[in-house]
Amino acid sequence: MTGASAPIIEVANLDKFYGDFHALKDVNLTVHQGEKMVICGPSGSGKSTLIRCFNGLEWHNSGRLVIDGVEVHEQSKDMRRLRQEVGMVFQQFNLFPHLTVLENLMIGPMKVRRQGRAQAEATARKYLDRVHIPEQADKYPAQLSGGQQQRVAIARSLCMETRIMLFDEPTSALDPEMINEVLDVMVELAQSGMTMVVVTHEMGFARKVADTMVFMEAGEIVEVSPPDTFFTNPSSERCRLFLDQILEH
């Protein structure tokens, strides 16, 4: 494992409530620089909530969350700076429908990072190349397939030159034949050394890239282990049952 490198996300005793519902229960977790972590678990187990806390789309109620040296909480003045370092890819893509692909990629660098148009466009085209759709630059999102839209969304995050990428079920809203083109891009990204936290049920992808597997259930982290242990000999019964269910066919 990448135990030698510095921790970049540190979660300690994190609790999160939605009204009376206890969404995250005493979560402890460490992600190191360059580590690829895959989080899985049944729906409603708190996986999405957890990574949405990582860039302040949700706020935890107690405990500590430190990302890249920044203490994350609702009153933090550093959240906007932090979000520029932490990219997020959503299940529903969330591209800006009124902007072309190229403009989707350029708006962050230009308006948030205050880059010039030429520089932003060069960066945008570079990352559009990396997700293998340079020819779609001038189209609107609605004119692209789901797989292409998700690759644009990945490129949009990359254009911010982020140090951490969060993926919230990036392939769950895709038609089956488009899943692989998105996973391929994610594998390449993993090979480039990016720190990645991925919520997904794509176990083939997890086997290929994960350094650490996390299993969550009912707001708790049940199992944290390297993939070989995780898939062959998980320590918890609940995790084994879950894997049996999703790996059966």
Binding site: R83, V86, G87, M88, F90, G108, V112, S157, M160
Partner: peptide, 10 residues
């Protein structure tokens, strides 16, 4: 989702 996407790029 548009709010979240805009927030997430800072």
């Amino acid at each position: 989702g548009q709010w979240e996407a805009a927030k997430s790029i800072g």
